[in-house]
Design a protein around this nucleic acid. Structure first.
Lengths: 363, 363
DNA sequence: GTTATTTCTGAAATCGATTTCATGAACGCA
DNA sequence: TGCGTTCATGAAATCGATTTCAGAAATAAC
């Protein structure tokens, strides 16, 4: 009871503990304290312990601004994702953050809402913050972006795609090849009448674009190219998956296989198929992309492409940490996707072809 | 073609443009340049324009580390969420980031994986980074946490809960009251045989704890308290929702209403109910919590509680911005939830009581 | 026309940690 | 014992922007 909690005059915050305070208490120079913190091995053990004790005593933490100023390194990485609402991005960000945290880095996060203009602004702001590395998503960006990054001389990597564009290295999967493989798989099952539902709105989404390309090319090569009306463009909502399926089947009632560029769209499509009385996969095979948690739990479980989001996040972290430290880094990293065959796909059964719903639609 | 791209010797990065460089070019002192940037109104317009022109010319951006060192403000906020994998958190983070971005703040993100020890470490690291404010989730934390925050004298707010605990103000909904209301609603429908599926594993999740409390209290007050076996504890995965429902109905085949503390669990439960041949809501009413996108799209659409995640994020941003600038701030902010009645709930129909599945289980 | 006031600008101190350089102590070897 | 190393430590310069303080210039007041 000898220490009244003198309700500090509020106006003045207690001054921060500085390295000098620790030095004085421990009866050494500030230089030594700094060495204990940064290169403990070059300080005599006995001294080191003493200093450490005082550091703990005063619960001293160094001022990162001063540190960054002197060293030129903020130990900070920035990421700009289109949105966090998509589990696949959230998962990647989480893995990235975890790996960075292990290495003493902290993650700035920003989102562009699929707006390239905004992406550029956020990047500007991150660079002003002095980040040491930057993670982007996808391969299409404002033209100024590259100049900005080059001028800042900040290591950069883009994610969820596999090909370096405009000098920006990438880590991710080959989206086009994935849907190509999916399409081939359905062809081998015997399907001939295809439809595609693609989230190519907004246009800046080059991943989905590549996915759609994969479908189109595979079918063109097979001699059964998709007609424009067999391709429904949507955003990435479940509701659009529903309406897209309805529209597709309205225009092409003989469709037996629907390839969606995201699981969310596929799940919407499945819901609508059920509502329309179409058995999946009996009357209609449906496939997704991403392998979100729900995909395996659907009834029937959804055939899809598994994207290694966590690996992408970790890989991006490793890449940047290496690049910052000057270690050699690869041009790009191609990660494998996985075609996950579940029960939403089956050979077409001629007897169960979707019936025309026109008559029933106006009731 | 007069400018060979002399492939800079790689070793030496072009030195950063400093305020002094701008000053020299513009033939003024560094002080004046600084003033142009920070208090343009006190500089003679003519001079100001000249300086600005040179700033643009050299595309000078100030060093945020030096700036932060001198001013003591980083213009940076930190958030620690349990995980980003839950859409409800991702949505809140996104809204928070957007609002902060408008005010020139940048967001550090970290995740604790529901581990309070880890939360503390991440907080430590964020404080060392000199953040100006911190956002937490929920009300249960390591004991040291509060001391750490107080010592750093950093404004803090916790989210997704409504009651300030241990001096930490909160913004969010009253979870207990929400499930209480949900329970009452089911009671009014005529239900008597309840079951609860709660994601109270890991134990640190006080939101779910409160939700479960709401159910228990409402039923106790109604004179039909839940027996321990009517409460299934789970984590937050869809798969656990499935197994939980199976276990619940195994022990209590007469159950007609199942209250889940998250939508994910509820969706799992619905999937399992279907598999068991139980009609929802005919034989079994099921409710969720969170109102994730999928909830409305289920068949039948899920009755649930809508949590205003975006508003929570925005509110947290506003709170901290005010607190930092010294503006008055409320003790806590209670936001309204919304009971969303959809088609997964209905009065119990005695004729369609769940049948005992024991006999069928070993096939 | 002189003094008082206001307005604007520059010199220099400052924020706090890091690191180079120099010095003194300890050690090895002959 | 003496000389040359190696090792550990402290003094002081440094990172880049901000801001106080003081002085110069311009304006107003009489």
């Amino acid at each position: 009871m000898d220490k009244k909690p003198t309700t500090a005059p509020k106006g003045r915050q207690q001054p921060r503990v500085k390295i000098e305070d620790v030095a004085r208490k421990a009866n050494v120079s500030p230089a030594t304290v700094s060495r204990v913190l940064n290169h403990p091995e070059i300080v005599r053990p006995e001294l080191r312990d003493r200093v450490m004790r005082h550091i703990a005593d005063l619960s001293y933490t160094r001022d990162s601004a001063a540190r960054a100023l002197k060293s030129g390194r903020m130990r900070t990485i920035g990421i700009i994702v289109p949105t966090l609402a998509l589990g696949i991005f959230a998962e990647g960000v989480e893995a990235l953050q975890n790996r960075l945290s292990e290495s003493g880095y902290t993650l700035f996060i920003a989102n562009s809402q699929y707006d390239q203009r905004r992406e550029l602004q956020e990047l500007q702001s991150l660079i002003e913050r002095g980040i040491d590395g930057i993670v982007l998503v996808g391969g299409s960006h404002e033209r100024e972006l590259r100049a900005l990054i080059e001028q800042a001389a900040v290591p950069v990597i883009t994610t969820y795609v596999s090909k370096a564009v405009g000098g920006i290295p990438a880590i991710g999967i080959d989206n086009e090849s994935a849907t190509r493989e999916m399409t081939d798989y359905l062809r081998r099952l015997g399907h001939v009448h295809f439809g595609a539902i693609a989230n190519v709105v907004p246009a800046s989404n080059d991943r989905s674009r590549a996915r759609l390309d994969g479908i189109q090319r595979a079918l063109s090569e097979a001699g059964i190219p998709l007609k424009p009306t067999q391709i429904i463009k949507a955003d990435y909502s479940l509701a659009q998956g529903r309406s897209a399926l309805r529209q597709l089947l309205n225009d092409h009632p003989d469709t037996t296989a629907v390839i969606c560029t995201t699981d969310t769209l596929a799940i919407g499509a499945m819901a609508e198929a059920r509502k329309m009385g179409l058995a999946v996969p009996g009357a209609l095979s449906i496939t997704g992309f991403d392998d979100i948690e729900l995909a395996a739990q659907m009834d029937p479980p959804l055939t899809t492409i598994s994207v290694p989001a966590a690996e992408i996040g970790r890989g991006a972290a490793d890449y940047l940490i290496n690049a910052i430290s000057g270690s050699p880094v690869p041009k790009s990293v191609l990660l494998p996707y996985r075609l996950v065959m579940r029960a939403s796909t089956a050979p077409p059964r001629p007897g169960e072809r979707p019936v025309r719903r026109h008559q029933a639609r106006d009731q």
